[in-house]
Structure formats: C-alpha cells, structure tokens
Amino acid sequence: MYDLQHITEDQLDALKEAGNIGAGNAATALSTLLQQDIDMKVPAVRICHFNELIESIGGAEQPLAAIYLRVQGDAPGNMFFLLEPKEAELFVHYITGDASFSWSNTSKDDINLSALNEMGNILAGSYLSAISDFSKVNMQPSVPQISVDMGGAILANGLIEIAQESDYTVVIDTVISLSHPNQQQHMVEGKFLLLLDPEAFGYLFRALGVEEDD
C-alpha cells in the first residue's frame, strides 16, 4: 500500500495533471459529439477521509444520478460521473431530444438510459484513454452503470477496495459543464471522481516520474 500520509506535493500535482488531461479529453469528446461548448474547471486533488468525501458531494443523503464504472488495468480504481438528478434529466433531453424522460417514469430498458450510459462510456473512455496515453499506464473502463440514489450509498461502492487499507482516499475531482445554447448559465454540471485503488499509486507515480526517493 502506498502510504497516503506520505504523498508529496509533486505526486499530488502529477495526479492533478492526469485529472486535467483526462477531463480535458472527455470535455473535448463531449463537445465534438454535441457541437457545444463545454467548460471545464481546474481539477482538485485531495486526500480526504471517507466522511469528508461524502460531505463534499452534498452529504450522504443527497440524491445523485451516478454513472459508475470500474477502472481495470495497471492502475485500477473506481470512477463516477455525478450529476444532479434534475440536471441528468435535462442532459438526457438534450442528447436524445426526448423531453419526456424523467427518473420517476423510467424503466431498466428505457432507450434514454442507454443513451445516458453511452455518454458515460464515451466520457469515461476518453478520460481514461487520455491518462493512459499520457502516462503509458494501461487503464480500461468496465461497462458503465447508472444509479439514482443517495450519494453516500453510491460512493461507498467506490470505497470498498481502499477501505481494506485505509479510511482515507485520494480524490481526483473535475467538474465539466454544458451551457444551454444562447444562454449564460450552465444547464448541466457533471463531476468526475476518480478513486484509485491502493495498488494503483506506486505504478502511476513511477510512470509519471514522481516516485519517492528511498
């Protein structure tokens, strides 16, 4: 296990850069697909206690629409793309043109959900492939899945691996937003969270050239 207490500033910066490259590529992919400007905020990387992480997404009970997938390969982990449930509905209306979609009347085989899932696929795939290309570390997304539920219940799913070693996790957090055409305020804001497994750090730090000197 990489001791999270001993992560250096350089290492955090390298992870931030990776998050930047990943989310930047995801934003570009989305922008190309939708023919729309996508704004991206500077990524944040922090080491926080599980409970702090849950507070940071609005608290354990905050309803969220989440696209979740497992990252496989040399630097495994868990990835989430989180949206406010209402904004996720708008996002679906926007990408499918079907304004009737709502969480209250959807079913498992809803074509709109497949569209949202496919968005998750594209976003996560472009996020991870950019980091892979940049670091030469193999990272592959699993099939994404959607859940609309309490934030704490959703995020705990991404903490199971790390929980066996720590009560803290490194969070790579990037926000992208899509503005409505001809309008100033954002329509949809989505948050990428990448939670790496403990064994991912050594590998990734070596690849990024920020290995600790022994």
Binding site: G59, A60, G152, A153, L159
Partner: peptide, 19 residues
Amino acid sequence: IADAKIAVHPQHLRTAGLG
C-alpha cells in the same frame, strides 16, 4: 461511515446513505 455511537434516552441515533 465506518463509525459507531452509543445513545441514552432520549437521544436518537441516525446514519445516512447506507448502500
């Protein structure tokens, strides 16, 4: 999460977002 507490009457105990 990963926490525990003891309550004595009339306190309540609450935990949110169990998955």
